[in-house]
Design a binder for these strands. Structure first.
Lengths: 142, 142
DNA sequence: GGATTAATGAATTCCATTATCACTTGAAAA
DNA sequence: TTTTCAAGTGATAATGGAATTCATTAATCC
């Protein structure tokens, strides 16, 4: 099944309509797979292609896609949120260059020898790391 | 050396003046050690204690303290930045409850058996995790 | 077809943060 | 001490990302 069909199915299955703005936003996301886009980035690219989609709709659609697990929202050190396609539940994390802000992705098959292997693999000199575990605390988990 | 004296020294050593607003903000931070405060939190607590310090000054001071390594700025999933005292280079990370937003801290002596041990130690059901390594990429590291 | 509901988009609002700029402070020099 | 002046401050305006409002439009149901 094509990538776009699969996403369409997820939308429809969750009782949402596949509208033109949603399809257009989805196309932008697919065309720019691998990049980390802000809502405004997407809004601009739509405009550049001649499509008029309201910024509010872009925000709403991105939020919806996040809820459906189609997208992941990323927060780096600046104020904006960045979005990227979630590819088949494959976690991946980010190396963030303090100098040029370049973002390199890496997957997490192995958590243990992370630091050493990553440094070698990407020639990245790690000076700090931030880990966040998300989930439910003992008060909330039942 | 007292905590406050030590921080004072760091300021002066970096050629910054020890002004009243900076000292007051430092006191608030020390009084609330262990909490994650926003700029506005600090501003409010100063006001509640009868001190008038401009919000802009609070922001500037927090930024300065971050540069000097006195503070760490934390970005969680909401829009605000949170600040906490950096205690002697001891990394620690965060468990964030998706339900009540409670934040539990944990240290990182051992990276490997993290997930399991954390779940047990804190009764926290981990459903996702986010790791960011910060440093310098191969283009920037020399 | 008419009614009901979902979705859209322009504009507005919100809110955290940053910039501006005239004024004040405090520490070094006189 | 007093003077001096860069450093620092604070009221307010500006910014920018995100959320909200509401009138309009599109899709779906009976």
């Amino acid at each position: 099944m094509s990538r776009i069909k699969e996403i369409e199915n997820r939308l429809v299955h969750a009782k949402y309509k596949l509208t033109t703005p949603r399809r257009l936003i989805m196309e932008i996301l697919l065309e720019n797979e691998g990049e980390h886009l802000t809502a405004e980035d997407i809004h601009n690219r739509l405009r550049d292609k001649g499509y008029q989609v309201g910024l509010a709709t872009v925000y709403r659609t991105l939020e919806l896609f996040c809820e459906l697990g189609i997208l992941a929202r990323l927060n780096f050190e600046d104020a904006s949120s960045y979005y990227e396609l979630e590819e088949n539940d494959q976690h991946h994390h980010h190396l963030i260059c303090l100098s040029c802000s370049k973002i390199i992705e890496f997957s997490d098959e192995l958590l243990e020898d992370f630091m050493e292997s990553i440094e070698k693999k990407y020639g990245f000199e790690v000076t700090d790391h931030k880990i966040k575990y998300l989930g439910y605390c003992s008060d909330c988990s039942n």
